[in-house]
Design a protein around this nucleic acid. Structure first.
Lengths: 190, 190
DNA sequence: ACCTGAACACCGTTCAAGT
DNA sequence: ACCTGAACACCGTTCAAGT
């Protein structure tokens, strides 16, 4: 499926880069629903050029997030080597929450993209999901995490916490801590 | 602050009721971002009439939700009499999640309204918040729930779970269970 | 091959005219 | 006092004309 990329014409490449930078700034400041006309204006490019390079808002978002997703993937592989699968899982969830909190509205977009193979963010979502699944399985094998927790649960909870973090000014770390305690294997009283 | 309501003119009252019914149906089907023009059309009323009765989308939402909020408030008072404050709190959270899940997008609206005294939903949010606070305090006094959990945490978690329930087709009950386990007082291993 | 922006569509909101 | 819908504003998206 990996199509060989023709080199872009110089002006096209320049416009592409300008759009990417402008979009990154706009999404960071105004959230993932930032006006695309504003983005084109900031990039000093016609709105048609934006649509030529990025046919949908999600395609633009995917390009903006791509490096971060790659970094996360690298981090996941490192964490899989950890001595403490439980600590590794918590650390992974922290990373996911930080990544998701970077742009207001991102949690909602990711949440719908994970169920939609037509979304340009679907591949990224699946990458993160499979990393989550492997880290979760390791923590469960180590006896740290309940066996009835699924990777779908994990994704939902992480996104839900990132979403909650968008509202209110305190950090999501505290909610993540409470959440994590709910996932742990517990010894019943009595 | 309770201003004496003049009786509405018969045609105004009729339009008000039609708008309320149409909005309830539209919000239930398309979420809280349903088109207000559609609502007016469904109510067979001019768009200007909608704005006259409900100056903002939130004012309309408040009117639609009002009965439900009153019912929840009654339920909270009953639950405060429960023998098991822990079970009462869980039951209360279930009610909140069900209420919030009724309209797609409601969790997000409530989450921003609770911090915004200018929102027409502010009073409802505060009512639910104080009920949550009392039920939480009771469960904490009974030794069932961690003392570091605040009512703000509780509200955020309930809304986050309702939000997650909007995406994906499984019910939120399962996530609520995991969440609740995170809030419980736990006996450390060793 | 790529860029541009006018044109179209859609929707929220206001307000002058009407009863 | 209340209703109406045309008018305005705003933004996403397409596409004919241009280089």
């Amino acid at each position: 499926m990996t199509t060989t990329q023709r080199p872009m014409r110089a002006d096209a490449r320049r416009n592409y880069e300008r759009l990417l930078a402008a979009a990154g700034a706009a999404f960071a400041e105004q959230g993932t629903e930032a006006s695309l006309e504003d983005v084109a204006r900031a990039a000093e490019v016609g709105i048609g050029t934006l649509y030529r390079h990025f046919p949908t808002r999600r395609a633009l978002l995917e390009a903006v997030l791509h490096d971060g997703v790659v970094t996360l993937d690298v981090r996941a592989r490192e964490l899989l080597e950890s001595d403490s699968p439980e600590e590794a899982l918590l650390e992974w969830m922290r990373h996911l929450v930080v990544h998701t909190t970077a742009y207001r509205g991102l949690a909602a977009t990711l949440m719908s993209s994970i169920r939609d193979p037509g979304s340009e963010l679907y591949v990224s979502c699946q990458t993160m999901r499979s990393s989550s699944a492997r880290l979760l399985a390791a923590a469960q094998r180590a006896g740290a995490i309940r066996h009835d927790v699924t990777d779908a649960d994990l994704i939902k909870l992480v996104n839900a916490i990132a979403w909650a973090g968008e509202h209110g000014d305190d950090d999501a770390e505290r909610l993540l801590g409470l959440m994590m305690d709910g996932l742990r294997v517990r010894y019943e009283r009595s």
